[in-house]
C-alpha cells in the first residue's frame, strides 16, 4: 500500500493536518507511527484505513480486507458483545457458521467469554477496547490499523497485541500502529514513522539505537512511583518483580541491540529499564 503525496484537512479553510505524506508499506511489514498529541497520527492511520479521504493525493494498493481498531471503541450501541461481534463478522463477509466460530474463538482468546451476553454500554473501557480489537481481526485482515491499541488493556491482553500483529505479518499482512505509551518496544522489527508539522519522516535504524538494560532495586513501597517516573522520563519498564535476589549473571549487563530486549524469565532484579533512544514515548 502506498500513500502518494497525501494532503488532508478537516475543513475547507482549516489548516492542513497532513502535508504531502508519501510513504509505502509492504506485506509482512509493521510501522509504528509516533509523534506528539495532535500532530495527526490518528488522521494518518484513518487515511490508511480508508476512513478519511485525502484532500489531495491518493492511497493506492490498499489491501482488500482492512481491520481498524479506533482509539475509542464506540460502546454506545444497543447490542451484547456476542451480537455485535457476530454482526460485524457477517458485515466482514463471513457466513453464519464461520462468524459464530470466529466470535467464539476471539472472545475466548481475548478474555471476553464471560462478557458475551453483556451489553456494550455496560462494559468497562478496557473490555470495550478488547471488543474493538476483536472486531478488526474476526476476519484476518490484509492491513491492520491499530490506533493506540494498548490503551486501557490489562497486562495479559497487552502481551497479546504483539502476538496478533505477528500473526497478521506471518500471513503477509501489513500493520500500522500508533502508540504514546512506549509499548511499541514490544515490536522490535517495526519501522518507525514520525509525524510532525503535518509531515512524515521515517527513522532509519542505526548502531546508535543499541540499548542497555539497567536493573534497579527500590523499596517495595516506592515501586509504583519509580515506575511512573521512569516511564515519564521515556524509559521502558521491562519487568517488575518482588524479590531482590542478585541475578545469576554479570552485574553490568552487556549492551545489546534493541531486537534482543525480550524480558528474561530468570534473574534477580526488581525492575529492568532501558534508556530512551531517541524515539517518542
Amino acid at each position: 500500500m502506498r500513500l502518494e503525496n497525501v494532503w488532508l484537512r478537516y475543513h475547507r479553510r482549516g489548516p492542513w493536518v497532513l502535508r504531502g505524506v508519501d510513504v509505502r508499506i509492504g506485506p509482512g511489514e509493521v510501522a509504528v507511527v509516533l509523534g506528539r498529541n495532535g500532530v495527526g497520527k490518528s488522521t494518518l492511520l484513518q487515511v490508511a484505513a480508508g476512513v478519511l479521504r485525502p484532500g489531495r493525493g491518493r492511497v493506492s494498493d490498499r489491501p482488500g480486507r482492512v481491520g481498524w481498531v479506533p482509539e475509542r471503541f464506540p460502546a454506545d450501541q444497543p447490542f451484547t458483545v456476542a451480537r455485535y461481534l457476530t454482526g460485524m463478522a457477517r458485515v466482514a463477509g463471513l457466513g453464519r457458521s464461520a462468524a459464530d466460530d470466529a466470535v467464539t474463538a476471539w472472545t475466548d482468546r481475548l478474555g471476553l467469554a464471560r462478557f458475551r451476553a453483556v451489553r456494550l454500554p455496560e462494559l468497562s473501557k478496557g473490555t470495550a477496547q478488547k471488543v474493538g480489537l476483536a472486531q478488526a481481526i474476526l476476519r484476518p485482515p490484509g492491513l491492520l490499523v491499530l490506533d493506540e491499541p494498548w490503551e486501557g488493556l490489562d497486562a495479559a491482553t497487552r502481551e497479546l497485541v504483539p502476538e496478533l500483529i505477528d500473526e497478521v505479518l506471518a500471513a503477509d499482512g501489513a500493520v500500522l500502529v500508533s502508540d504514546h505509551r512506549g509499548e511499541t518496544v514490544r515490536l522490535p522489527g517495526a519501522r518507525r514513522w514520525t509525524v510532525a508539522d503535518g509531515a512524515l519522516t521515517e527513522e532509519t535504524p542505526s548502531a546508535d539505537e543499541a540499548v542497555a538494560v539497567v536493573e534497579v532495586a527500590v523499596p517495595a513501597s516506592r515501586v509504583a512511583g519509580t515506575v511512573a517516573r521512569l516511564r515519564a522520563d521515556g524509559h521502558q519498564i521491562l519487568r517488575v518483580r518482588p524479590d531482590a535476589a542478585p541475578p545469576a549473571r554479570p552485574a553490568a549487563p552487556p549492551i545489546r541491540p534493541a531486537g534482543e530486549l525480550a524480558p528474561e524469565r530468570s534473574g534477580g532484579t526488581d525492575a529492568m529499564v532501558e534508556p530512551a533512544t531517541g524515539e517518542a514515548r
Binding site: 484505513a49 476512513v51 482492512v66 479506533p70 464506540p74 458485515v91
Partner: peptide
Amino acid sequence: EPDVQRRLAQVSVG
C-alpha cells in the same frame, strides 16, 4: 449509529 461505528462499517464494506 455512532460516528465511529459508521466508519468501522465503511472500512469493512467500502
